[in-house]
Design a protein around this nucleic acid. Structure first.
Length: 760
DNA sequence: GCAAGGTC
């Protein structure tokens, strides 16, 4: 048996090894059987287990949060709720196989998924099974066959490194989140916030945002003065700035201004022209793609990643989570390019590529050995029904154009520096002109803004072929009339606010989070009311600001990204077998325990600083209408984590007021489930156990939406159906009605309420 | 109620 990390990889592995037979082990999980080799390839869904607090520590008040660090039994591994069918498959095939091959992704998390999450289930049913590892650099058939013929001993140290990461994140996160939340409980209650989370990555990121916010809030603008000249050139105006700009000495600047303000002519002293080639871009890894999409389409990182995933699942682009920007030598670019030949918009560009035989892409530098760079797999017109929404079209367009640009010619720009003399004062004007658009023709969004070409200066530089000249210097070449001399007072500006695009870059630079988690880390800070987005800019809210302000005197070593990079170094030493996992977990725990105790010591100071929140009742900043002093509870719904967009609604109207559809409310741990009417607050309760889903069909008795309830019992799941309205009626009247299976006249067929067939 | 990391 081969254990794989995901469905797509399982299928690719199986198909590379021989003809495949698909075995459905549950509604959604398939196992791929390669009959010729008698191999079962079993997919997983990433991690199938996670660390949680053991039952004794489940309640926040039950035990001292400090024990989460000191008591090794405080956290335990639990199977995820979707893991049932995967575990069943591991057990079923574990029993009948003699060799178990770990074929998860070739990285630390992949090893931990295969060996820590999945393998124990196999070993439990078959303790003597042999274990090997399939080390895959990509999912091409060649690589898979090669790796299969060269199985390696399992890389345990890699798996332990990942496991240590998970343990430390859980211990640090759970203990600190509880300790800080419980400390702030009275204050948080008053400002309507449930808890304040602390984590290795999110807290470092919040600290960096706090530092920037601090700079911006405390920024004092300093004045400076600038001199510039508007010069007339035919019907255009070109602007030249004083060579000594900017002036901090107002008197000096003013005296120059007075000297030249009535000048009529600007003498061209010299023209320097140089040209520069701009290389085609390098292939797209996840990080680059997220930065590109958020920047060009001005959407959030979360939406960008979601759209990439959707395009991938619809087989429109390749796997979107990769650290590589190098294609393997055997990557079949030709067949992709050929698909684009007939494209209405990109077709001509691609034809030219074939004509010029430019069919090899520019390569990047990093081959992380995971997946190929992000690549369009098919050629789609914007009208294609395969797109589910407008955003998918736009993202596909960006990725396709970018990919095609890898085969493009370099672009070329010319940079012209013109030095003027205005009454002996030197002024300079810089012009940047695109002289050869090269790959920008297919990917114009990669281009910076250029000036319109000015052939005037080409004539001035006496007819030399400027394209081939790197630098030409001419003196006293003529004059331009001065339209106006400008003398302006300006002020220094604070550093800019982060947006999703620059924040992703920051996280990459500071090595915070991974390609897959960065967008969700940003989202967590928003959900916690630590930060908010306004006009795509990130603002730190009062809660986040004060928290960092108060914590920085106690926890600086933890807030600094150096903490997480040190942890990562330690994890590396496990991977490289220089240190034992136990040793590293102990060291980091000890280090954090000292900080934890320091927090306890400083609690009174911390609390008094955070009390400001309570006094002003203000967790936000910059939204004037929300700053209400001396009111204890004010937090409007808007500043709370807004999950409203995730709500599902019934199509039927509220049976009471008949004005609104009803909102399906499910809280995070699925303990509360009900329909509620936003208008009249009417409730329809739902069964306590199981996950409800609104079906597209309506109850033929009352007209309300039929709901499917999925129940999971141990490793199995089953569905049943009910009508919430009839069911609530049944509860009230104790008639036990509303279950579709017990309905006299109707039944559910293919998810639809239909009349029962009558049998004569 | 909590983290960060995978993934449908």
């Amino acid at each position: 048996m081969i254990i794989s990390e995901k469905m797509k990889a399982a299928q690719a592995i199986a198909e590379a090894l021989g003809p495949v037979q698909i075995i459905s082990v549950s509604k959604f999980v398939k196992v791929f059987y390669v009959k010729s080799k008698d191999i079962y390839v079993i997919p997983l869904r990433g991690h199938i287990q996670q660390y949680k607090n053991s039952p004794a520590y489940k309640k926040w008040n039950a035990r001292d949060p400090r024990e989460i660090i000191t008591n090794p039994d405080a956290i335990r591994r639990f199977s995820n709720d979707f893991a049932g069918p995967y575990i069943s498959a591991l057990e079923k095939y574990g029993k009948i196989c003699s060799l178990c091959i770990i074929g998860t992704d070739a990285d630390v998390e992949g090893c931990s998924i295969g060996m820590i999450d999945a393998l124990p289930f196999v070993k439990q049913v078959n303790p003597s099974i042999r274990i090997k590892q399939l080390w895959l650099n990509d999912l091409s058939q060649n690589s898979i066959v090669k790796a299969y013929n060269n199985l390696i001993p399992p890389k345990w140290s890699w798996a332990y490194s990942g496991d240590a990461r998970a343990i430390l994140d859980a211990i640090i996160g759970f203990s600190a989140t509880r300790e800080v939340s419980l400390t702030l409980k009275p204050i948080l209650k008053k400002i309507g916030v449930g808890f304040t989370s602390i984590g290795r990555v999110q807290t470092s990121l919040l600290y960096l945002l706090y530092l920037r916010e601090h700079l911006i809030r405390n920024f004092v603008s300093k004045p400076f003065w600038s001199l510039s000249a508007d010069l007339a050139l035919k019907d255009r105006t070109i602007v030249a700035t004083h060579l000594k700009n900017n002036f901090t000495d107002k008197i000096l600047a003013e005296s120059i201004y007075n000297k030249i303000k009535n000048a009529k002519d600007a003498y061209v002293v010299s023209i320097k022209k140089s040209s520069k080639k701009i290389l085609t871009p390098t292939p797209l890894n996840t990080s680059k793609t997220l930065v590109l999409i958020t920047k060009i389409l001005k959407i959030t990182a979360k939406d960008a990643l979601k759209t990439l995933e959707d395009l991938y699942l619809n087989k429109i682009i390749s796997y979107p989570r990769t650290d590589s920007d190098v294609y393997s030598k055997t990557y079949d670019h030709l067949s992709i390019l050929q698909k684009f030949l007939i494209h209405n918009t990109y077709g001509n560009y691609v034809k030219t590529r074939f004509r010029l035989k430019k069919v090899n892409p520019r390569q990047g530098k990093v081959d992380a050995g995971d997946h190929s760079p992000i690549t369009p797999l098919i050629s789609l017109e914007p009208t294609s029904p395969k797109f589910e929404n407008d955003l998918q079209k736009k993202v596909y367009d960006l990725i396709s154009r970018y990919y095609l640009a890898l085969f493009g010619d370099p672009a070329e720009e010319s940079d012209t520096k013109i030095l003027f003399s205005i009454k002996e004062e030197e002024f300079i004007s810089r012009l940047s002109v695109l002289t050869d658009q090269g790959f920008y023709s297919i990917a114009p969004f990669l281009s910076k803004k250029y000036d319109a070409p000015l052939d005037f200066f080409d004539q001035l530089s006496s007819g030399k072929d400027s394209n081939k000249t790197d630098s030409t210097t001419k003196t006293h070449l003529g004059t331009l009339p001065v339209k106006k001399i400008n003398f302006r007072e300006k002020g220094t500006q604070p550093p800019p606010r982060y947006n999703d695009s620059s924040l992703l870059k920051l996280m990459e630079r500071k090595n915070l989070g991974t390609k897959s988690t960065r967008p969700s880390i940003i989202q967590i800070l928003i959900d916690r009311s630590y930060i908010e987005r306004k006009n795509r800019m990130i603002f730190v809210m009062e809660l986040g600001f004060l928290l960092m302000d108060a914590l920085k005197v106690i926890w600086l070593p933890f807030l600094d990204p150096k903490f997480t990079s040190n942890v990562e170094m330690q994890l590396e030493s496990i991977r490289k077998e220089k240190k034992q996992m136990k040793e590293v977990v102990k060291d980091v725990k000890d280090e954090f325990l000292i900080l934890f105790d320091k927090f306890r010591q400083e609690k009174p100071n911390f609390l008094s600083k955070m009390n400001v929140l309570e006094q002003t009742g203000n967790i936000t900043r910059g939204r004037d209408n929300l700053i209400i002093s001396n009111k204890k509870v004010f937090v409007p719904n808007k500043t709370r984590p807004d999950s409203s967009k995730n709500y599902k609604y019934s199509t039927a109207l509220c049976p009471n007021c008949k004005k609104n559809p009803m909102k399906l409310v499910i809280n995070r741990d699925y303990t509360k489930k009900f329909f509620v009417c936003d208008n009249c607050n009417t409730f329809l309760s739902l069964p306590k156990k199981g996950t409800p889903k609104i079906l597209k069909s309506k109850c033929l008795i009352c007209g309300f939406d039929v709901v499917k309830i999925t129940r999971k019992v141990r490793n199995n799941s089953y569905d049943y159906y009910l009508c919430p309205k009839c069911w609530n009626q049944g509860l009230k009247e104790k008639t036990n009605e509303g279950f579709c299976s017990k309905c006299k006249d109707f039944t559910i067929e293919n998810g639809k309420c239909v009349k029962k067939k009558e049998y004569p």
